[in-house]
Every structure is written in structure tokens, then in C-alpha cells.
Design a protein around this nucleic acid. Structure first.
Ligand code: ZN
Ligand code: ZN
Ligand code: ZN
Ligand code: ZN
Lengths: 148, 148
DNA sequence: CTGAGATGGCAACAATATAACAACTCGGCC
DNA sequence: GGCCGAGTTGTTATATTGTTGCCATCTCAG
């Protein structure tokens, strides 16, 4: 499946391959996250999922998020208590996030040097890494240009 | 002031140099964090500060933490919603944390290669870094040894 | 068809963090 | 000493984020 294919379609096929179900609620959450250009909090997703008067309860969203996180379809931005869709969920990866506190845009990068140096640093301490949280908060290029 | 001097004493002198006050509440919070061998949540600190029947309110702790964070005397572990005392607060530094999910111990390291590669990765995107959150969750050497 | 397992709805709750305002403390100054 | 003002703390209430438990419903293999 080429990179250009729609993320939702790719997610669908990933789930099929793994024998798990991308159910309606899960797909809705993923779609909402992918449509947003910035991370969304769980309760923002909840709000976006409202269907007329019908309002959903938090567990619905958190369960969907748990599933999506587990399968690497979304990432959690710890420093923001928010979630973003992943752009290349085909392979497990440890990525880093550049978070602009001005415009709110979050860029996911996967820098080999960072991953490697972090691995080495852990190794030196005899530490077995399992999960990595790497978030850089600052000003993106656009906002830096705009505001001097 | 040599590295061997007690952290509280060093904190005192740092605050004096900067013309800010390490008040009783702030010193208490710092002392509690430094006495702990693992990160503490704000409400755990609150509990530790209880003095007989007299119970404090959350803002007291959060305000002290704000001050200590601002002056680099403590760090926040974002992935845990918890706080640790810094062992070398004399100079501003961007550190990384190795977090053992088994014994709860958190080790602060300051790896030049990590800092440097992360800086380069941000530069490539024209991103101006201001704050860095680097946390590795896994198993520490002791626990790895113990549990195979 | 049927039963086990996965999923979703719902209500209550727990944990983390902040807002707003009043009261107090500590310097410097007259 | 007495006064003032900035910074600090106390207090109450509230906002935000995340979880648990229970049961209804749906799905799918056998
Ligand atoms: Zn990703
Ligand atoms: Zn920006
Ligand atoms: Zn430090
Ligand atoms: Zn350990």
C-alpha cells in the first residue's frame, strides 16, 4: 500500500492484516484526529463526535484511543494531554515531536541520530528502553518568521 | 559551592544569588522531593506536607512547584504527572530521564549526544526549541538483573 | 441457533490542575 | 516604631483529564 493512499484506508488494511477490527467508533476518532492540524484532547474529540443532541461518554473515546495507541495509529503528546494521528503507521517506530506553542502545530519526525543516541545513553546505564517520549516545545519556522 | 554540599543549602544560595526567596513552603516541597528516591505527584507532596490535622490545599503545592520548576530546582516528569528534585541546579540544563516502571526509580542524565542530535533535528525543520521533554520508560539495570 | 468474546453505553468516580479573591508576611521607608 | 506595597499564602470552588464497574448489544465461529 503506497504512502500516498489515504491514512484511513491504510489504517483499515493494517487492522485487517493484524486481525483486529477498526470499528466505527475507532475509525471516527482516527478520522477526527487526522482531519485536525493540531493535537486534540480527549474531550475535544468527544465534542467533535457529538451527533446532534446525542452526546457520548468519555469511556467511548478513551477506549478508542487505547486501541489506536496500541496499534500505533495515533500518538499521545504527553506534555499536552492530547493526541495526534500518525502519518506512517505501517511500521512500529519511535518518533519525536516538534510542538509549536504559538500556532499549535505538531510535527512528527523520526530522526535516526536522536533514536540512536538515546539508545546509547540508556545502554550506558544498563537501562532497557521500552517506550520513548521525546517532545520539543518551541516555535515553528512559520511562526518564527511571522513574529520575528 | 561544591557539588557535595547538601542540595537544600545549594538551592538556598542559588535563590539568594538570583534575588528570589526560597520560602518555607517552597523549601518544604523541595526537601520532600529530594528525600524521595522516586518522583512524587502533587497530591503525594500535599499529603507529605500535612501537619497533624492541618491539611493544605492543592494551590499551595502547585505554586511552590511552579517556582521550583521556573528556577530549575525540580523537573516535571510529564509521562508520570510527577516531580523530581534536580541534582545539579546550578546551571540551566536540558536533561533526559530514565524511568523504571518496575521500581519507580528515575535517573536524570544529561547526554551531550542526545541534546546535540535533538538540536540538529529541530534545526533542520527551522524549529526554535525552548523546552525539551525526553523520557525513556523501561527497566533499570537492577530490576533487569532481578527479573531476568 | 447458540454461546463466548469483543464492543459500546452509561453512571459514577478518581486524579490532576487552575481560578478567584481574601489574608497575611516581609522589606524598605518615613 | 508605624506604614506601605509587592510578593506570598490560605481558602473555596471549579475545571480538566482519565478510570472503574456494570450491563446491554453485537459479532462470529462452531
Ligand atoms: Zn508515528
Ligand atoms: Zn507555529
Ligand atoms: Zn536537572
Ligand atoms: Zn527498576
Amino acid at each position: 500500500m503506497p504512502m500516498s493512499t489515504d491514512v484511513l484506508t491504510r489504517a483499515e488494511s493494517i487492522c485487517q492484516q493484524r486481525g483486529v477490527r477498526l470499528t466505527t467508533q475507532r475509525r471516527r476518532v482516527l478520522a477526527i484526529l487526522c482531519a485536525s492540524n493540531r493535537p486534540l484532547g480527549a474531550y475535544e474529540i468527544l465534542e467533535a463526535m457529538r451527533d446532534g443532541a446525542r452526546t457520548l461518554a468519555p469511556p467511548t473515546v478513551y477506549r478508542a484511543l487505547d486501541f489506536l495507541l496500541e496499534h500505533g495509529l495515533v500518538h499521545k503528546i504527553e506534555s499536552m494531554h492530547a493526541f495526534v494521528g500518525c502519518n506512517h503507521p505501517e511500521h512500529p517506530h519511535s518518533s519525536q515531536f516538534l510542538i509549536c506553542h504559538d500556532c499549535g502545530v505538531v510535527t512528527e519526525i523520526d530522526d535516526a541520530a536522536v533514536t540512536q543516541s538515546l539508545g546509547s545513553a540508556a545502554d550506558v546505564s544498563g537501562f532497557r528502553a521500552q517506550r520513548r517520549v521525546v517532545e520539543v516545545i518551541g516555535t515553528c519556522a512559520q511562526c518564527a518568521e511571522k513574529n520575528g
